[in-house]
Design a protein around this nucleic acid. Structure first.
Lengths: 202, 202
DNA sequence: ATCAACACTATACGAATGTATAGTATACTA
DNA sequence: TAGTATACTATACATTCGTATAGTGTTGAT
């Protein structure tokens, strides 16, 4: 009974073994966490042996580095593709939507980040810092083409962007669990409460 | 260099070994997660040997059961102590405050729940179900003394109570990290953005 | 065709883990 | 005071883990 979590084998089967290993590890990390995922489980999910995982990525640290860089690339790719046209607000909104689309296409990103960000003591990577930097740079380019916002507001805006997008996704599984326990598994979906997360400037 | 996380040794030292083991395990689980905490680490933090941990709790499952029951007791104790006087809204508000106080007195509860609830695939306990049940019962007693709310709204209310209380606590660490990275470690505390989490009825 | 680089497998090893067992000290009951 | 249950320690064992090493197949340039 081998389960394939998150990655479609059809898509996966004509990738290089190295890419398959990275994808398998990414999906497993997102679903079960890095510590609960053994190199042997990664190898099996990718259809190779442990030795090859070590050959391509050396250690688990190496694997995590590649995965986190991949996540940053996904964010950057999503933001990059929206043109710098229109008002600042329009650009910001278009970026929000592009990122939201990317997240919905790549659920493993959400799962991985949920674990990484909400486990401040345990996580050994630097993904939060990398993403915060990326978001800060994006806000800065926005300021260059549009109205300048007061510099000390920039930080709040960066945090606002990330929390709005991720916070809701992080907590929604908890709402879903409770909803199905309370209302029964086959209750009307449209009655389900919606989560709203926002940051308030002080 | 042995660190004592969360538990004051002064308070701890005149407890029974069994209670010390439970407290040590609770604090370690909250900070590092169950999987990353070995029985030997628990034993060392409690000042005993591994054998005694096994003697008192049999397995890690047994330990988790006791800890989760302890958490439920803390919630129940907080709610129980507010008298059923005043309007429904007043009772509900007083309960919210009692729970908030309990959470601030027992940070390990927040840490433990953050891990348990945000790790839907990995967690092996039943704490979310237990707490949802408890919250549902409390909403039900509220309905008996006050105005009846439509039954299908009860679920939303239960979810609202738990999310309002826990959601903000779960996400705030993420805001804090980003804030100190962006604004520098010694920026003015009162500029820090405030997180608001709520559920919206559909 | 040869040789070197690379992809990949097989196996092994030490460390850490959860738990079992056997034994010792301490406390309680008769 | 004797005896037994309970608290507690010490040690052992099988399993799983990350990683290292040695070897086999495969490809591609000359």
């Amino acid at each position: 009974m081998k389960k394939t979590v998150g990655v479609s084998p059809k898509v996966n089967s004509d990738l290089t073994a190295k890419a398959r290993i990275r994808n398998a590890a990414f999906a497993l990390y997102a679903n079960y966490g890095e510590d609960a995922t053994s190199m042997r489980a990664i190898a099996e999910a990718a259809g190779v042996t442990v030795g090859l995982v070590v050959h391509h990525f050396r250690t688990k640290d190496g694997l995590r580095e590649v995965i986190e860089q991949h996540i940053v690339d996904l964010f950057f790719g999503a933001i990059k593709q929206v043109p710098l046209e229109g008002t600042t607000a329009e650009i910001a909104a278009a970026r929000d939507e592009a990122v939201a689309d990317m997240l919905s296409d790549n659920p493993a990103v959400v799962g991985y980040l949920r674990r990484a960000l909400l486990d401040p003591m345990g996580h050994r990577g630097r993904i939060l810092e990398m993403l915060t930097d990326l978001a800060a740079k994006q806000v800065a380019t926005l300021r260059n083409v549009g109205v300048a916002s007061k510099a000390h507001r920039d930080s709040s805006q960066v945090i606002g962007v990330m929390i709005r997008q991720l916070g809701q996704l992080f907590l929604q599984p908890m709402v879903d669990s409770m909803w199905s326990q309370l209302a029964g598994p086959n209750a009307a979906e449209d009655d389900k409460p919606l989560l709203v997360v926002k940051v308030q400037e002080s």
